[in-house]
């Protein structure tokens, strides 16, 4: 009886996983393999036939200045995003956690942006930059406040700001969760030792947040490196390439007016390598700090 049940269980386990395996292989892995394959061809996306050209696309890309400037911009964007997310996220989490009155209200307002689609946010901020900033300037008697999206120096920061406006909510929630896992006794004993508030933050709160910080940092870094929707809707890579993130470049190369589909795929493969390396780093870090992590 028991043995029969056991076999039955094994069968049920297997059957449960089967649709997942099939769907995933058929609709995902197959496409990924095709994508990798296209990166080694000269298919522009239009032609009915194409050739296998090995690693030529990668060689071309490595010698291409436009691609390199995109990579530089992307890394700057992603790193800034990580720094701001960590600093603002921790600050916000600590603040929200210590507020006494209207706590729910504050939390729900700060979490609200996570509910809206990136497209809607980009469209709304685009309008705010164009319409509200000059109007605001007029109100305070400052003439000619220019949209930050129209300036090479500020466009990337403006895009980053809009991106952060939405994406800060999730890391903050994770930080709050991290804060709540800190045992109270530690604060009490710190207090008895006469620690100042900053010391308390520095020696009690921060060390306990380290695992959460690493998780958030890596997640943010990844989303920063692959980011493209905000810049696509706000600036489309301009002005003068100053916001041409790799994500947008891939999109334009793949689906733009003159498609170079295989090149776009080679760019994605390079992105894949970067993300894979980052993820391996993440896994090794989080397994090391796993002691604190649950």
């Amino acid at each position: 009886m028991r043995k029969k049940g056991f076999n039955m269980d094994r069968a049920s386990f297997f059957i449960i996983t089967l649709p997942a395996l099939l769907l995933y292989s058929f609709f995902y892995i197959y496409s990924v393999i095709l994508g990798f394959y296209y990166s080694m061809t000269d298919w522009d996306g239009l032609a009915r036939s194409f050739n296998f050209i090995g690693l030529d696309n990668f060689k071309k890309l490595l010698g291409n200045k436009a691609f390199f400037s995109s990579v530089t911009i992307t890394f700057r964007y992603a790193l800034l995003m990580v720094v701001f997310t960590i600093v603002l996220g921790v600050l916000l989490a600590v603040s929200l956690n210590s507020v006494k009155r209207f706590k729910t209200f504050f939390k729900s307002v700060f979490f609200f942006p996570a509910m809206i689609s990136s497209v809607a946010i980009a469209l709304i901020w685009d309008q705010v930059f164009i319409r509200a900033l000059p109007a605001l300037g007029n109100m305070f008697g400052v003439e000619n406040i220019a949209s930050p999206l129209g300036n090479k120096q500020t466009a990337l920061y403006a895009v980053l700001f809009v991106n952060m406006w939405q994406s800060l909510a999730m890391p903050t929630v994770i930080f709050i969760a991290g804060l709540q896992s800190i045992p109270d006794e530690l604060y009490e004993s710190a207090l008895i030792d006469g620690a100042s508030m900053f010391d308390q933050f520095r020696f009690v709160t921060l060390p306990y947040l380290v695992p959460t910080i690493t998780v958030n940092a890596i997640l943010t870094l990844k989303s920063g490196i692959t980011s493209f929707d905000y810049a696509k809707a706000l600036t489309n890579g301009g002005p003068a390439r100053s916001t041409m993130l790799v994500g947008i470049k891939i999109y334009i190369d793949a689906f733009g007016e003159t498609p170079k589909f295989s090149i776009a795929n080679a760019e994605s493969v390079m992105l894949f390598v970067v993300i894979a390396v980052l993820s391996i780093v993440q896994i090794s870090i989080s397994s090391r700090s796993g002691v604190n992590n649950t």
């Binding site: 197959y30 296209y38 994500g247 891939i250 793949a254 589909f261 994605s268 894979a276």
Partner: peptide, 24 residues
């Protein structure tokens, strides 16, 4: 195997899948 296989998706940027999947 299945777990590792499914986790592969964590590394793959969405751009690479887009056109092949739509084609399919």
């Amino acid at each position: 195997f299945l777990y590792t296989y499914i986790m592969l998706g964590l590394f793959i940027p969405s751009q690479i899948v887009l056109l092949p999947i739509v084609k399919q």
